[in-house]
């Protein structure tokens, strides 16, 4: 059986998505996304530009935001706080991974 092949797109800063796409991926409304931009937890690639676009690396975070809003019934302000803290945890986890990678596997 010949299987269909699907091409994948990286969700990283090099792939930009429109406001409408980010809303569709995350399940958040454009008004809610705008509010997250006001709170400073979501930053468009060019905040001064006319049409806002967003780096693909933010998609996963905004999907988490959509789930948290639905599942925990969070208000925008609480959602912004949760995202700030989740962002800090991710940063610390990345730092921890980096430091762990530098530890020798076997003691010499």
């Amino acid at each position: 059986m010949k299987l269909e092949q699907a091409d994948a797109v990286w969700l990283d800063a090099n792939h930009e998505f429109s406001f409408a796409e980010l809303a569709r991926f995350s399940g958040l409304s454009e008004a809610e996304l705008r509010e997250l931009v006001d709170y400073g937890v979501l930053t468009p690639t060019d905040p001064q530009g006319g049409e806002w676009t967003f780096g693909g690396d933010i998609v996963v975070t905004m999907q988490a935001a959509g789930r948290l809003r639905d599942d925990l019934e969070l208000e925008p302000q609480a959602l912004a706080l949760a995202l700030t803290l989740i962002g800090r945890i991710r940063e610390l986890e990345a730092q921890l991974r980096g430091l762990r990678a530098q530890l020798p596997r076997r003691p010499p």
Binding site: A8, V9, W10
Partner: peptide, 22 residues
């Protein structure tokens, strides 16, 4: 549902890919 997904080079741990319509 079965299909093949091509993962382009450049992956690392924890990175995400989106497969549209899959």
């Amino acid at each position: 549902r079965s299909f093949k997904a091509r993962i382009p080079k450049g992956a690392t741990d924890g990175q995400r890919l989106r497969l549209r319509g899959k």
